[in-house]
Amino acid sequence: MSKLKISSFKRLNLAVFQLPFWSVYWESVDAIKESPIIYGGINLLIFIMLAYVAYWLYQQLSYTNKESKVRDFFLSGSEWEPLLKSAEILEQIKEYEK
């Protein structure tokens, strides 16, 4: 269960990492040819903004940042709660063995 938790956490970080690259898919080659400065500049600004948002989310979702409201929002719900409970049980078992 702990490996599943780590896998889910890494998958979430990967999803955040790809956020700025979604802005690239909406580019039109014809529009870039007609006005590369305006259209390319706007797309570059959107890419930079999404890169900043992705970096901020990545920092907020850090495994060591346990008091983040963003982390609590994304890592909650019916699929995440059993993983957290199993991790607590594993920690209790390790403490009991000591």
Results as ranks from 00 to 15, higher is better:
residue 9 F to C: 09
residue 11 R to K: 15
residue 8 S to C: 14
residue 87 A to Q: 05
residue 22 W to L: 15
residue 31 A to L: 09
residue 54 A to H: 01
residue 66 K to I: 09
residue 81 E to A: 01
residue 69 K to W: 08
residue 82 P to N: 09
residue 55 Y to L: 11
residue 69 K to Y: 08
residue 36 P to K: 11
residue 16 V to Y: 04
residue 56 W to P: 01
residue 13 N to E: 12
residue 47 F to T: 05
residue 33 K to R: 12
residue 37 I to P: 00
residue 31 A to I: 11
residue 69 K to A: 11
residue 42 I to S: 02
residue 46 I to C: 04
residue 61 L to S: 03
residue 78 S to W: 14
residue 53 V to F: 07
residue 58 Y to E: 09
residue 11 R to S: 11
residue 72 D to C: 12
residue 9 F to I: 03
residue 4 L to H: 05
residue 1 M to G: 03
residue 49 M to E: 06
residue 61 L to I: 07
residue 46 I to A: 10
residue 29 V to L: 13
residue 6 I to Q: 15
residue 47 F to M: 04
residue 39 Y to A: 04
residue 2 S to H: 08
residue 93 I to D: 07
residue 18 Q to K: 10
residue 86 S to Y: 02
residue 49 M to V: 13
residue 59 Q to C: 08
residue 79 E to L: 10
residue 98 K to H: 03
residue 22 W to S: 14
residue 42 I to L: 09
residue 63 Y to Q: 15
residue 82 P to R: 03
residue 30 D to F: 00
residue 3 K to V: 09
residue 37 I to N: 01
residue 83 L to Y: 06
residue 27 E to C: 15
residue 26 W to Y: 13
residue 31 A to N: 08
residue 11 R to A: 15
residue 14 L to K: 07
residue 31 A to Y: 13
residue 58 Y to L: 15
residue 15 A to C: 02
residue 2 S to I: 11
residue 86 S to G: 08
residue 61 L to Q: 08
residue 8 S to R: 13
residue 62 S to T: 04
residue 40 G to H: 05
residue 74 F to Q: 11
residue 40 G to Q: 02
residue 84 L to A: 09
residue 67 E to V: 05
residue 40 G to A: 10
residue 75 L to Q: 06
residue 67 E to Y: 10
residue 59 Q to L: 11
residue 17 F to V: 07
residue 78 S to Y: 13
residue 23 S to I: 14
residue 47 F to E: 05
residue 40 G to M: 01
residue 16 V to N: 06
residue 84 L to T: 07
residue 40 G to K: 00
residue 39 Y to R: 03
residue 93 I to A: 07
